[in-house]
């Protein structure tokens, strides 16, 4: 019984171990790809567990719990890669005092734009044709649209998008 309920946590543990090993051993693998492999490895464990326990009733809830926890782990690993806040803190941690102008020279909107456009192009979300950027795959766009709708809802429509 305990094995059935703990299978999402075992899956998460496998996810963390596989992710850490991939990041440590395969330097050429990106953070997002490593998270893809490790999430799949953990999910396999969660899906395989009922074969051992012969208890299939808990497979759907266990998969949902596992995927929700993996999403949290994804954020924990991915936030330092993509977060503007973490980057600002890193810049401040390097020196005792930094003026806003200096900070913006090192890491300002132009850096953010360049970095994000490169990442969105590399991951195939957008495409660049003779200096114009267009949407290629709409998957992340839909997520952005849902988040923008929620933002508009909580701010009573007063947002700049």
């Amino acid at each position: 019984m305990l094995l059935i309920f703990s299978s999402p946590l075992i899956g998460l543990l496998i996810n963390i171990l596989v992710n850490f090993s991939v990041l440590r051993l395969s330097k050429g693998t990106g953070v997002v790809s490593s998270l893809g492999y490790s999430t799949a490895a953990g999910l396999l464990v969660v899906l395989a567990m009922p074969i051992y326990t012969q208890e299939f009733e808990h497979l759907p809830p266990n998969s949902v719990i596992y995927l929700a926890l993996s999403y949290c782990f994804f954020h924990f690993v991915h936030i330092p890669v993509a977060s503007v806040r973490i980057r600002v803190l890193l810049e401040l941690a390097k020196r005792t005092k930094v003026s806003e102008a200096e900070l913006l020279r090192t890491y300002g909107a132009s850096h953010i734009l360049e970095f994000r456009l490169k990442r969105l192009t590399d991951t195939g979300q957008i495409a660049e044709t003779s200096g114009a950027f267009t949407t290629k795959v709409k998957r992340i766009y839909y997520v952005a649209a849902v988040l923008a709708t929620l933002k508009r809802f909580v701010n009573r429509g007063e947002v700049q998008l």
């Binding site: 734009l113 994000r116 979300q125 950027f133 949407t135 992340i140 766009y141 952005a144």
Partner: peptide, 9 residues
């Protein structure tokens, strides 16, 4: 930033 860029594009 990525969301704003995607929505604008």
């Amino acid at each position: 930033p990525s969301s704003v860029i995607l929505l604008h594009i």
